[in-house]
Design a protein around this nucleic acid. Structure first.
Lengths: 137, 137
DNA sequence: CTAATCCCAACCGAAAAGGTAGGCATTATG
DNA sequence: CATAATGCCTACCTTTTCGGTTGGGATTAG
């Protein structure tokens, strides 16, 4: 089980934006260079984040991207969900997807516990938390 | 983030074996039919589980598969790891993979916490736990 | 006007997922 | 010994996803 590059890059970009205390838009090439992410790829990642309402973009000269909400209001899980789609480990978690065995399925118990462990971890960490923990160089 | 069918099937098969209190080998077609898994696919899944020492196989007539260890000694994480490979969310978790930013990387903090949440959940549930929780029909 | 910037659609190669087909090796049982 | 049930193995196939590129268009500050 591996986090996709898309998701990894996306979180890095969000943290990068969160670390910019000045609230002016940051141009994409600057994020890409700062984080070592291929620019065209990052562009599509930011498009998804924008569609999910996590960042807002300003076009034209001196435009760029900013967080759409305070860093403390954006959880890591919001970023992951925006980029990976809804977190669903198996078809029957969290909702039984029409599988008639679901109620008596022992395996499902395991996936549900895993699901809540993941959801808990991802929703409890905000971008603000991460910028505080980063060691400045 | 989704569990692969391979992994889902694998856990179901393991629980199926664990539920067999009689310790005689269970033929593959019986597992496949009982769990609704394509037999040739299940065969390759069981091969991996055997290579990892989680099940043992007996060939020939009246052969089949059995758990290689008591159900209480096999954690769900063992099954997942056997089928999915080592659980590594990103290249730098749990070990920095030569990334010189790793020490000061804010995102890594998030992945590490997620990693420990997942590892904790997967290692704390055994097959025995699951067979106890299953609702018999 | 022009250069910087975001926006968008199409394409591409590689890998993995999910599954199938067919044949070989082993062994309990009659 | 013959046979049928079983596990073991290799190769193949189709579809989807991943990671990324190309090329062009729309917007806007200076």
């Amino acid at each position: 089980m591996r986090i996709s590059s898309r998701c990894e890059y996306g979180l890095r970009a969000m943290v990068f934006l969160a670390a910019r205390e000045d609230r002016r838009p940051v141009p994409l090439p600057e994020i890409a260079a700062g984080e070592g992410i291929p620019a065209p790829f990052l562009e599509r990642i930011l498009a998804r984040l924008r569609e999910s309402g996590l960042v807002k973009a300003t076009r034209g000269v001196s435009g760029g991207y900013q967080l759409a909400q305070p860093a403390g209001d954006i959880a890591v899980g919001d970023v992951v969900t925006a980029l990976e789609g809804p977190l669903s480990l198996v078809g029957c978690v969290p909702d039984d997807g029409g599988c008639e065995r679901a109620e008596s399925c022992a395996s499902r118990v395991a996936w549900r516990r895993l699901d809540s462990a993941i959801s808990g971890a991802l929703s409890s960490i905000t971008l603000e938390d991460l910028t505080r923990e980063a060691v400045p160089r």
